[in-house]
Design a binder for these strands. Sequence first.
DNA 1: ATGAAAGCGCTAACAG
DNA 2: CTGTTAGCGCTTTCAT
Lengths: 341, 341
Amino acid sequence: MNIKAVAKKAGVSVATISRVLNHPDAVAPDTKEHILKIMESLEYTPNWFARGLKLNRTGVIALLIPEILDMGYMEIAKGVEAVAHQKKYNIMLCTTEEDRSKEKGYIENFIARKVDGIILVSSFLKNSDFDQIKKQDISVVLIGKNEELTGENLVYTDYQSATGEAIRHMIEIGHRKIGMIYGTRPKIENMDKREGFRKTITEEGLNYRPEHIVEEENSIEGGFLGASKLLNLKDRPEAIFVTSDIMAIGAMEKIKQAGLKIPQDIAVVGFDNLKISGYIEPKLTTVAKPMYRMGLVAARLLFDLMEGDREEDGEPQEILIQSKLKVRKSCGHLDRVKEIF
Amino acid sequence: MNIKAVAKKAGVSVATISRVLNHPDAVAPDTKEHILKIMESLEYTPNWFARGLKLNRTGVIALLIPEILDMGYMEIAKGVEAVAHQKKYNIMLCTTEEDRSKEKGYIENFIARKVDGIILVSSFLKNSDFDQIKKQDISVVLIGKNEELTGENLVYTDYQSATGEAIRHMIEIGHRKIGMIYGTRPKIENMDKREGFRKTITEEGLNYRPEHIVEEENSIEGGFLGASKLLNLKDRPEAIFVTSDIMAIGAMEKIKQAGLKIPQDIAVVGFDNLKISGYIEPKLTTVAKPMYRMGLVAARLLFDLMEGDREEDGEPQEILIQSKLKVRKSCGHLDRVKEIF
DNA sequence: ATGAAAGCGCTAACAG
DNA sequence: CTGTTAGCGCTTTCAT
């Protein structure tokens, strides 16, 4: 069913059909109504290829995330979707699995498909990979900082300082020997946390001990394993900072199995603020990442860019959205430890 | 950058350019190489609109799910993505929020966009809504049964009999007064579980008591609330079947807070087999849904359909993939209760 | 207010 | 093996 058939049946030219779709006010009310009815009866739906070919606009934005089975990224997606849906845009969702070449492949694909905008989450690309995109005047917004990719529109949260805040809080409570279990993935994010850890420990005049830092896979099992290693140390830490809640849960399981009490014997602090973290025993102190909000803000920025609203100044924006420490019981905060719930 | 410019610079016709892209063997090796180089230097990327307009193929399949912040649906998405990526297809992901009109809107959108195939998860559509799609010869595969939408290619799991299996297991263990907390969403799925519950209870000759069935929002809080109601009953159940693990976690929290022991005082069985369910205390007996597999199988079926492989018989397929009961400690299974881990 | 017609970039049938 | 050319369905000048 195409525009020609509708035109024929309605007894008008294709131009008029096109007009009722694109500039309804430019056509006589009765003709319009008549045509609308014909369209209905023929179940006509305009062909987006033809339209796109002409207008060079797709009504699609691409969202590239590292991994689909990760609540955090999905929250970003939810934020993006909220804006996109309101703007009547569709989302093409692709996952990179933290593979730079896969990421590049998708970017090429997006360019060929002429998506109207791209949101890149935790990208591994470098500035040089970006030349291609720039030439296409496709709007791009990055979520998550990456030192190798600068000068682009960016929405991010500061994992390093958020980690610093968490560590400082542990120190305030009185912990001196603080260990760390950090996840192999997500890579960039966890490197920031590690640096935040190192920096804060040294700044606060504590002893920075590499043997108190272990790397494990980002999973319950990984946390379990990491805690095992730390507990086996002759001089084991009295508090552990874990780079994800999911690992923290595994670590807590191990600590409990070892017959130790959290936080009395060993305190634990996580990262992510999963829903579940507020319900496990003891409730997990953790850092809440503003994922949904980052998705929302990034999408809004992208649409502004696409609509040319921010072209005036032209300078790429960098928007920082802070993460927030959620103090609960597992860190050993005195007020909380005394709480029953 | 278009095919014409490349042709000009290469000193050949556009047809030859098109050929190196689509039928590389039909062009002389040296011409081909020459053209490839020119393309590279011009950073030429074919325009998919033009191509799609001509071929009426997009290289995109649409995946419509109810909700993005749900691990189960995301596992399906992962399965679909695995197949799609291998076939060099992109996925357009959209969410319906269990809103039939939103779902219909997206379907229209997919038709206009001429996606090559559609996978509908837990669709609320009726047969009548499908006339439109059928006319377009777009392949469709459904995931999740829906009585109002029949005669389509379908991949599903049987929640009713899976629930039956769970309940029967509880009965075998010796529980007689079995209650149920069921989540408002996902609607169709939970109606099946409710029916499975009712049927099994009656079939096994137990007393079916509506007051032992409560409906709550599908969340930790909902489970907590549901358990509260059940515990407040004068004649409270000695075992509770909960339609989702996330609710079961809330219910367990409430039960513990009430000073009761799981499973000794009250047994709990969940549904979903979340990762976390194997780590909470006591480990949760639950039903594992084959989400990833359903996504995988549905996508394969879709591509078969698209490639015409199954057109021979033409009959729509219905593929059942069974859910599986995971017996752990929370249900009070004797062998498990005695286990330390 | 409406129509005629030129293309958007590409593919494939046809001719050489 | 390569070139010419007719569309694919739509939007948009430019006329009327």
